[in-house]
């Protein structure tokens, strides 16, 4: 029995600070993934050309879509990785229980999403600089942060939310896999199977509808509510499931 009482918040705070250090290598993969996405983006996401007489005009379209998508994927995988055993055992360095361990993971994922979201949006500028200076003769219709500060902020904010949503999903998936390795096969199979089934049937299937629920939401307020509710539910699911695990497995 111990005489000192520690509050949950104190432990979470300590574990979180520790995790920022111990899990820091996820940011190396973030930089790497984003640079890879920037590289893919340099080909342009589309293009067209007009030729008349002796003039040939080529237009290439660019955007940072790849970077945002890759960052979401990064969030998903990072969340899975931190539920694995090697990472989970780290928590036993401190006085811990499932709640503090899960909460500090969630806070860590939130911070990681913020860093991922900001760098993903900023990477548009890296693509622009490379294209302007090395690839094209003229640039068409382009806005800078100065022209459209609101759009830039919406971009950062929505990217953070998307990455966080995928972190939450990854965390639940990771927790399920820790409970039973069967899920490591079952979940990807269900997802791919769903995609193929949707593709074959030619109708908008469940996966397309679920994605559409977030990706076609045009009201920012509703979008925020949807993401926070979903991420919240996913985390609660993961917390509940992890409580069913044996002590220190």
């Amino acid at each position: 029995m111990s005489l000192t009482k520690v509050s949950l918040i104190d432990i979470v705070k300590k574990q979180y600070v520790y995790k920022l250090k111990a899990y820091s290598q996820v940011f190396i993969s973030l930089i790497f993934i984003q640079l890879l996405a920037v590289f893919f983006s340099l080909n342009g996401v589309g293009g067209g050309g007009i030729s008349s007489g002796s003039i040939q005009i080529n237009v290439s379209y660019f955007s940072a879509d790849f970077v945002v998508a890759f960052t979401m994927l990064w969030g998903f995988i990072t969340a899975i990785v931190i539920t694995t055993k090697t990472y989970r055992i780290d928590d036993f360095i401190f006085v811990t229980n499932r709640a503090s361990s899960n909460l500090s993971n969630m806070v860590f994922l939130l911070i990681a999403s913020v860093i991922g979201g900001i760098t993903a949006m900023l990477s548009t500028n890296l693509i622009k600089v490379i294209v302007y200076y090395f690839k094209s003769d003229f640039a068409l219709k382009s806005t800078t942060v100065m022209d459209m500060p609101m759009e830039f902020l919406i971009g950062i904010f929505s990217t953070i939310l998307y990455v966080f949503l995928f972190c939450a999903l990854g965390y639940l998936v990771g927790t399920l896999v820790q409970i039973s390795k069967v899920f490591a096969v079952l979940l990807p199979a269900a997802f791919l199977g769903g995609l193929i089934f949707d593709g074959l049937s030619g109708k908008t299937g469940v996966i397309a509808k679920v994605l559409g629920f977030y990706f076609t939401e045009s009201s920012l307020a509703l979008f925020i509510v949807k993401i926070i509710m979903t991420a919240g539910l996913l985390f609660i699911g993961a917390f509940a499931l992890s409580n069913r695990r044996e002590v220190r497995t």
Binding site: S63, V68, T124, S136, D137, K141
Partner: peptide, 16 residues
């Protein structure tokens, strides 16, 4: 031959 480049917002901005 003239090369133009056009930049667009990412999908998560266009959405709004």
């Amino acid at each position: 031959e003239i090369k133009f480049s056009q930049f667009g917002n990412t999908f998560n901005i266009k959405q709004f």
